[in-house]
Design a protein around this nucleic acid. Structure first.
Lengths: 187, 187
DNA sequence: TATCATTCGTACTGATCGGTACAGAAAGGC
DNA sequence: GCCTTTCTGTACCGATCAGTACGAATGATA
């Protein structure tokens, strides 16, 4: 049979898009097969655990991407204010101004939440922690930094929901602008 | 056969809970049947259009509840600051501090969004408009009122996502407290 | 060219999906 | 007392679900 992909990791972005668009339950194997161009044989070869293993792999890749591009910069930068600003720009681009759903957030609202509870909690907890640390280093008081970080991380998720429901990416941009100002405001 | 319910509206809250917990795709007729105690015969008697009609009816009821308990008070009150404060208290109770999912928001993130796009957009648009009007009457400038309203409505949705992912209702409460302060702050 | 593990398509399983058909029981009018 | 309308359970439909089995094609090695 014809070879289509060399690496399991090659299909993860395609897989992620299917889960984002259809959710965990809605992402049927036939949809996944169509989106990846892989038959069931290949799919179960790469992911013996089936759909659940596919979702875990996708979540791990997303987690790794945010760790490298968002969380770590927030923790390790020498210029926390610039790092916070970069975080908003990076996430706005990643979520395509609300046109792209946050898979972690969407799973948190679905009945698949319990299945992946630990990973979902971990993702958001590390995001809030990293942002809290950056805000504290930027001059916010310890308790205010945590509260603002929660408001910002939650606010980004809410911006995705609202922009998608209203079908208005400009609403996403405006909310993020407000959140950024709140993070960088009184230091 | 034994009669179980008298009115179609009696099953709407049960139906809503099934959709909230399992999403549109995940709410199978067998789950719905179990949750409502109604067989398929009764279900299709009340909702000839099947699942889609059930979801539409549930959305209409939710919309009606928010219109009566949240949107209209914001529009018609003589004390806009008190009305805004009441909105936060009412929604916190309705969403049970993030333990209960917002069905409208969850559907907006799912692949059922297109099916109900108009209703989802309408719900959030009216919420933002009503809150904008109240904030303007409370003394905010016209452009600031709109921006804060979007941030607040989105923020509530994000608070549900975050509190549910972290399994921490206190995060929901803290975020709402911050949003309320932002709405009532500099008037 | 022969070998061999890896990769892949297809056919299949049993279960469940949303929806339909229909017979029969309860309720209400008379 | 019927008799009509309103409700309700159950059996069934074709389609699709996640997952398994397995043979065939492939690419690397030799």
């Amino acid at each position: 049979m014809a070879r289509t992909v060399a690496e399991r990791s090659d299909v993860l972005p395609l897989l992620a898009e299917v889960f984002r668009e259809h959710g965990y339950e809605g992402a049927s194997l036939s949809l996944i097969s169509k989106a990846t161009g892989l038959g069931k044989g290949s799919l179960y070869h790469f992911f013996p655990g089936g759909k659940e293993e596919m979702a875990v792999a996708v979540l791990a890749e997303i987690d790794g991407w945010f760790e490298a591009n968002v969380f770590r910069p927030l923790r390790e930068t020498n210029d926390p204010r610039a790092a916070v600003a970069t975080m908003f720009a990076t996430t706005a681009e990643y979520f395509r101004s609300g046109r792209r759903v946050c898979l972690v957030g969407a799973l948190s609202l679905s009945d698949a939440r319990d299945r992946f509870a630990g990973r979902l909690r971990d993702y958001f907890a590390r995001w809030v922690e990293a942002l809290t640390a950056a805000l504290a280093r930027a001059g916010h008081g310890p308790e205010a930094a945590g509260a603002i970080a929660e408001e910002a991380v939650g606010g980004i998720q809410g911006a995705v929901v609202l922009a998608r429901a209203l079908d208005r990416p400009d609403v996403f941009e405006r909310i993020l602008t407000g959140l950024r100002a709140r993070c960088l405001g009184t230091a």
